[in-house]
């Protein structure tokens, strides 16, 4: 494995990651503000649209995992710790908000906002752990 291999792996990662994130962002904004107003019929169409919204996120997560597998031991450690901290922060937020809702402290909060929260937490974690070079 050489520098060129690592650069290729990072290029492959960015080539897929950023378009998927843009698609995801458009879907999240569109889903949050547009889909409710359109109220598409029939029910199966709503189901297909809802599941389709998750596809870019699943793709992004798979690309992030592929990058972690293709890179070397240090970068893999940084990526996986970023995943772990992102997961810890996101699940903690889910539990906290969940209990706040259960005790009627806050009203309903759209659950898909926890997706972007994971990616922000993952990005910040890899930056803190590995510096700018690994994020």
């Amino acid at each position: 494995m050489t520098q060129q291999t690592f650069k290729s792996a990072k290029r492959r990662y960015h080539r897929v990651f950023w378009p998927l994130m843009i698609i995801y962002s458009i879907i999240v904004i569109g889903g949050s503000f547009g889909l409710k107003q359109l109220d598409p019929e029939p029910q199966w169409l709503q189901t297909v649209l809802a599941i389709a919204c998750a596809a870019p996120v699943i793709g992004t997560l798979l690309v992030m995992m592929r990058y972690a597998e293709e890179t070397d031991e240090y970068t893999r450690m940084v990526q996986l710790r970023g995943f772990a901290w992102g997961g810890i922060l996101t699940v903690s937020a889910i539990f906290t908000v969940g209990f706040l809702q259960l005790f009627h402290v806050v009203d309903k909060i759209e659950i898909f906002w926890f997706g972007p929260l994971f990616f922000i937490a993952y990005g910040l974690s890899t930056f803190v752990i590995g510096g700018r070079q690994c994020s």
Binding site: M1, T2, Q3, F6, D72, E73, Y74, T75, Q133, C134
Partner: peptide, 11 residues
């Protein structure tokens, strides 16, 4: 050195 070892420069 990274090339000799087969790791990234960051490593």
């Amino acid at each position: 050195l990274a090339d000799h070892l087969g790791v990234s420069r960051q490593s």
